[in-house]
Structure formats: structure tokens, C-alpha cells
Write a protein that binds this DNA or RNA. Structure first.
Length: 289
DNA sequence: CGCCAGGGTAGAC
DNA sequence: GTCTACCATGGC
């Protein structure tokens, strides 16, 4: 079927599909041609393009609510940025410099967890390649308009095939074992990702639970919490964020150790910390790519 | 060939 | 609490 979703009318922060999907948060989007993108979201294959005032999709079922949630189309970016801008003038100018900025709400915390375990010490291109290879090898096939993609394999599937199978993918840093152990914890109910995504589960509890996984420390747990668990106070700090902060605030305006930077960001930006982290990342990313 | 990338970890202090 | 060598792989 085809679907059409009217886009929110914001002049300051208009929606731009191509800017958003070119971002580095969700690794499974592919360009089909000059207009259409292909993705696999919540186990559904989706084709997407933007018309002047709407988001157009092809899929097997109605995914209006899935896409509205994913792109946070019900969120008013103007008032969000007005609120952050009032806290900090440097962030205010970043919001102006990156009007197409969007924070995605990824529907599958398991996929997000595996993807970000793969992200450590890897380039975006390589993460995309490896995540796609995991889906290709172990995920169920899905088809739309002649295009074949694969769902991201659930933890059950990882457990079923064991770590050996993943080893062939050469994920590096013993990640085949880390992903297998993560699947074990999820299936054994030691880690309840659905509960972590619940609004009643505090950010800090979700983060502590995630950090019990091998290969998940401060930065990656914050990425998972921010991107797929709806915890906006998460403030992932990597080299890009650190550099972006150093450039703007200097050594006297901000701390230098990663741990202290997390605390600094969260105290300064509160429930907007995650948005600010992504904005800072964006600026650094665009400057070096 | 060797060097580097760069987040997490264990072990050092 | 902080510092550092190491991890596995691929790009250069």
C-alpha cells in the first residue's frame, strides 16, 4: 500500500527526510534512487520519499503511527529549540545552523543495542556494513516492489545459532561473543529491554542495566537509552562530542574527562541533554565529512 | 610491512 | 577516583 503523512509546518525547523536519513543514528537506511529510501523498521520493509508538504511511503501495512513516532513528527521542534536556546546561546546558534536536525525514536532496542556494540572503534560505513551483514545472514527475508531486505534477527535467533556463526562476520574486538552474551541476558530475562523502554523506568536504571552487558560502557549505554529507550536526559560523549564542546566552551568552560563531560551536559541541559549531544555531534560530523 | 583508528575493559596506582 | 595497555579488524 501507499501512505501519505502530512508534515508539521515549521518554518524554522522544517522536516527534511534526506538530511535526517543521511545522519548517523540509524544504520539501516539505503538510497534506492534519487527520491526513495529503503529501510527495515520494526521488522517491516519500507520505502520512503518526501513531497513538498508530506512524507510518502510504500509498505505492506499502514505505518502512519510507526513513522510519526520514529521521526517524532508530533514533536514541535520550534518550541523544543526555543527552550534549549534559552539555556545556552552557543546551542542556540547550533540550532540555527542545523535546522533539519531530528532525534529519531528507534522502535527496536535490541537492534539498537547490537548496532551500538558494533559501533565502538568503527567508522559509520563499517557499522552499516556489519549491521546489514548480520541481518542478511540471520534475519528473515522481506520484499517490497521487487526489493529484498532482511529483518534484524531477534535475540532468540542469535542464541539459536551461537557465537560461532557470528564469528564469520569478523565483527572485531570479540563482538560475536559480546552479542551472544547480550542475547543470553535478554532471553534469560536478566535484561528486560521492554521494561527499560517504559516511561516509568528511570534513565539511570536503564543505563545501569545496559552497562551490565559486555562491550557496553558509558557512551554506548547512553546511545541506546537516547535512541531507542526514550531517555532524553542521556548524553552520549565520544570524541566528536568532546571536540565539539572543547571548540565552543574551551578548557575553562567545560571539563575534560568523558565522565565529567556527561555530568556537565546533563546538569546544563537537563531533559534536553540528548538533543544537545546530537546537535553537537552533527556539527562535528558535518565539519569533518 | 607497520601504524593508526577509538570505546570498553582490566589492572595498575 | 585516574591512567594506560590492550582488544580485532581494516584503511592507509
Amino acid at each position: 500500500m501507499q501512505g501519505l503523512i502530512q508534515l508539521p509546518k515549521s518554518t524554522r525547523h522544517p522536516f527534511n527526510l534526506y538530511e535526517v536519513l543521511d545522519g548517523t543514528q540509524d544504520f539501516r537506511w539505503k538510497k534506492l534512487d534519487s527520491e526513495w529510501y529503503s529501510g527495515v523498521l520494526a521488522g517491516k520493509i519500507i520505502h520512503l520519499r518526501q513531497t513538498p508538504d508530506a512524507l510518502e511511503y510504500r509498505s505492506h501495512i499502514n505505518i502512519d503511527s510507526l513513522l510519526t513516532s520514529y521521526f517524532r513528527l508530533d514533536e514541535n521542534m520550534d518550541s523544543l529549540f526555543a527552550a534549549v536556546s534559552s539555556l545556552d546561546s552557543k546551542i542556540a546558534s547550533l540550532a540555527q545552523a542545523y535546522p533539519y536536525f531530528r532525534l529519531l525514536r528507534q522502535p527496536d532496542p535490541w537492534e539498537c543495542t547490537v548496532a551500538y556494540i558494533c559501533s565502538a572503534t568503527n567508522s559509520v560505513q563499517r557499522i552499516k556494513k556489519k549491521v546489514e551483514e548480520i541481518a542478511l545472514m540471520l534475519g528473515e527475508e522481506v520484499e517490497l516492489n521487487g526489493e529484498i531486505r532482511h529483518k534484524f534477527p531477534p535475540p532468540e535467533r542469535i542464541l539459536e545459532v551461537g557465537p560461532k556463526e557470528l564469528e564469520y562476520l569478523r565483527l572485531g574486538l570479540s563482538r560475536h561473543k559480546k552479542i551472544f552474551w547480550a542475547a543470553q541476558r535478554v532471553i534469560g530475562n536478566e535484561l528486560d529491554l521492554q521494561r527499560m523502554a517504559d516511561v516509568d523506568t528511570e534513565y539511570i536504571e536503564a543505563k545501569n542495566e545496559l552497562m551490565k552487558l559486555e562491550g557496553v560502557g558509558d557512551k554506548i549505554s547512553d546511545c541506546i537509552a537516547l535512541f531507542s529507550l526514550d531517555k532524553p536526559e542521556a548524553f552520549p560523549v565520544d570524541r566528536n562530542i568532546k571536540n565539539a564542546i572543547m571548540v565552543r566552551y574551551g578548557s575553562s568552560g567545560a571539563p575534560k574527562t568523558p565522565r565529567a563531560l556527561v555530568k556537565w551536559g546533563q546538569q546544563r541541559f537537563g531533559v534536553y541533554a540528548g538533543y544537545v549531544s546530537q546537535l553537537l555531534f552533527q556539527s562535528q560530523w558535518r565539519a569533518t565529512n
